[in-house]
Design a protein around this nucleic acid. Structure first.
Lengths: 220, 220
DNA sequence: CGATGCTGTTACCCGGCGGTTACCCGGGGC
DNA sequence: GCCCCGGGTAACCGCCGGGTAACAGCATCG
C-alpha cells in the first residue's frame, strides 16, 4: 500500500511515517502542498494523508486539485481540533475521510486501511457513491460539491442505502432499520420518503428501484 | 436463523440464548474459543455472536480464524468498552458489527437480524455461465459487458437456470420454483417468459430447448 | 400563538409486468 | 401427401407496484 504523507511539521511527519512503515506501508513524505502535488503527479498513491494546515498551498487547495485531476488516490484529511466547526469542511472538497488532531496512531492506521478497502465489512466513516459523499458523524451529505439539506429521515434513508453499497435493500428492511422497528408493515411512507429524497438529490438519478425487490444506489 | 453464541460466562450465555430462542432463532452455545471453532467447523451458522474476552483462545483470534477460513458466517462481536483501541481492532479483524457491553437484549436481537440481512459484498455469490454474469444480491445480469434490463420474472427464471449449471430443468420444476407453487400446471407462461428472456439475452443463443424435457443453459 | 418544516396518510395516476390467447412453424408418424 | 403435437411468437389487456401531489397531525421555534 502506497501512502503519501503531507505534513509540514517535519518531526511529526517522520514519526508518523515510521509508524506507518512499521505497519508495512510504503510511505513518501511531502512537507508542503506544492511538493504534495508534485509527488502525486509522478507517483500513484493509494492514500494521501493530508494535513489541512499547510504553509503556502493550503490543504484544501491540494485536495481540490487532486479531485479536479481525477486522482485515483483516496484522501484522508487531518484537521486541527478547532476546525471541526469550520464552514468549509473537507467533505465538500472531496476528501474520503478526516481525522481530527490529536489522533491515536492506531486509529490513523485503521482509517487508512478502511479508506483503502472501501468495500470492507466495517463501516467507513465517510460513505461515497458516485458523486455523493455522506458523513454519518456530522450528518452532512454533499452532491457535486453542493450541500444537501436533508431531513433526518431522508438522511437516515440515504445513509442506509449508501451503506449497502449498491446492494438491493428491500422496503421492509428500510422500514425496520430507518423507522421504528414496530412500524406498520403496510405503510407507504418508504416510497414517499424515497420520492422526497430523490427530489432533493436531483439529476442524474442516484436511487434506482428494482421492482418487487427494493431500492439500490448506482455508481458504487 | 442459526446463531452460535460464544460467551464464557455460562449464566449470561444461557440467559441470552433464551432470549434469542424466544425470538425464533436456533441457538448453539460455546463457552470458549476452541469450542467455537469446533462448532463452526461442523455446522453452518448465519451469525456468530462472539464475546471478545474469552479465556484461552481470544475472541480476536476466533474472529481472525473465521475470516481466514472464509467462513460464510457473519461475526457480531461483543466488546467490553467502546474505547478507541476496540474500534481499531474491530476494523482490522473484519467483524461485521460491534456491540459494546453492557447492551440491551433488544438491541442485540436487532443487530443480529441486521447483520444477517446484510448479505455483504464480501461474499461473491455471482453466477457465471458463458459470457453471462448474474448477481442475485444486486439483481444485475450482465452479458458481454452490457447490463440486461430484466423483469423480476425473467431474472428469477435466468437465475434458476444458471443455478442449475447446465442441467436440464423441466418446465414443471420452473413453475414450482420461480412461480407460485399453486400455479396452473397447464399454463403457457413458462414458454412465453422463456421467449421474452431469450429476446433480451440476444445472440448467440444461451438457453437451449431439450424437446419433451425442458431447458438448459449452455457453456457452464 | 402563529409560522414553519417534518412526516405519515390518503387518493389517484401511470406504466409495465406477465398471463392468456391465437396463430405459426417444423418434425415425426401413418 | 396429410395430420398431430410440442414449442415459439406476437398481440392484447387486466392488474398491481410504485410515483406523486395534496393534506393533516405534530413538534419546534421565534
Amino acid at each position: 500500500m502506497r501512502v503519501l504523507l503531507v505534513e509540514d511539521h517535519e518531526e511529526l511527519a517522520e514519526t508518523v511515517a515510521d509508524v506507518l512503515r512499521g505497519e508495512g506501508m510504503a510511505v513518501d513524505l511531502a512537507f508542503d502542498g506544492a511538493a504534495a502535488l508534485e509527488r502525486t503527479g509522478v507517483n500513484r498513491y493509494d492514500v494521501v494523508v493530508l494535513d489541512r494546515d499547510l504553509p503556502g498551498l493550503h490543504g484544501d487547495e491540494v485536495c481540490r486539485a487532486l479531485v479536479a485531476a481525477r486522482s485515483p488516490s483516496r484522501v484522508l484529511m487531518l484537521t486541527a481540533a478547532g476546525s471541526v466547526e469550520d464552514r468549509v469542511d473537507g467533505l465538500e472538497l472531496g476528501a474520503d475521510d478526516y481525522l481530527p488532531k490529536p489522533f491515536a496512531f492506531t486509529e490513523l492506521v485503521a482509517r487508512i486501511r478502511a479508506v483503502c478497502r472501501r468495500t470492507g465489512p466495517s463501516l467507513p466513516t465517510i460513505l461515497a457513491c458516485a458523486d455523493v459523499r455522506l458523513d454519518p458523524a456530522r450528518r452532512t451529505a454533499i452532491r457535486a460539491g453542493r450541500r444537501l439539506a436533508l431531513s433526518p429521515k431522508e438522511f437516515a434513508l440515504l445513509e442506509h442505502l449508501m451503506a449497502a453499497g449498491g446492494r438491493i435493500v428491500s422496503a421492509e428492511e428500510l422500514l425496520e432499520r430507518v423507522w421504528d422497528e414496530a412500524a406498520d408493515p403496510f405503510t407507504a411512507t418508504v416510497k414517499v420518503t424515497i420520492g422526497r429524497l430523490r427530489a432533493k438529490l436531483g439529476e442524474p438519478p442516484l436511487i434506482e428501484t428494482v421492482r418487487e425487490a427494493g431500492y439500490r444506489i448506482g455508481g458504487c
